[in-house]
Design a protein around this nucleic acid. Structure first.
Length: 154
DNA sequence: GCCAACGTTGGC
DNA sequence: GCCAACGTTGGC
């Protein structure tokens, strides 16, 4: 079992959007970075833990806990000419982009990036490193446990 | 909206 | 395969 932090712009899909979807589940489409794709395609398994992170917004931070609820499958938007995620080089026979499904476990009181930076136990978190831009990053089990035990209320 | 940092593209 | 130019990300 692995742990992940997955960024979503709340303007695209917020934690409340996720909560309102059927099955409180969303296809994590639109990833167009090879490292992030490889995490989904090669390493994610059903049940992996997810920190649902709001990025590029007024209050960046962890907005909820989720879980990986499918293994990776071809991202449908790569074949859709009308989608901004269309990829002319991708075909159904040789898809280039993949996504998993992510299901809400629970919404939490936002843990701001400022709060995250305050804790020495989290100072090595991938997403807090200078220059990090990856939208999907592995989370160390110790970091996951620290966050759930100390920063997530009931 | 600024801009540092990083990934990708494409000419050579 | 180098690397300059360009596009994107995302905190501030």
């Amino acid at each position: 079992m692995r742990y992940w932090l997955m960024k979503s712009e709340p303007g695209d899909c917020s934690i409340d959007d996720l909560a309102s979807f059927p099955g409180q589940t969303v296809a994590w489409y639109g990833v167009r970075n090879y490292q992030a794709r490889n995490f989904m395609r090669d390493q994610m398994r059903i049940g992996d833990g997810v920190l649902f992170y709001h990025s590029n917004c007024k209050e960046p931070g962890i907005a909820g806990i989720a879980r990986v609820s499918s293994t990776a499958y071809p991202d449908a938007t790569q074949f859709d000419k009308l989608s901004k995620y269309f990829d002319v080089k991708a075909t159904p026979e040789t898809p280039r982009w993949f996504n998993v499904d992510v299901q809400l476990v629970k919404k939490i009181a936002l843990i701001s990036i400022e709060e995250l930076r305050r804790h020495p136990a989290l100072e090595r978190m991938r997403t807090l490193q200078r220059g990090n831009r990856l939208s999907i990053t592995p989370v160390d089990p110790a970091e996951w446990n620290f966050i759930l035990q100390n920063l997530v209320g009931d």
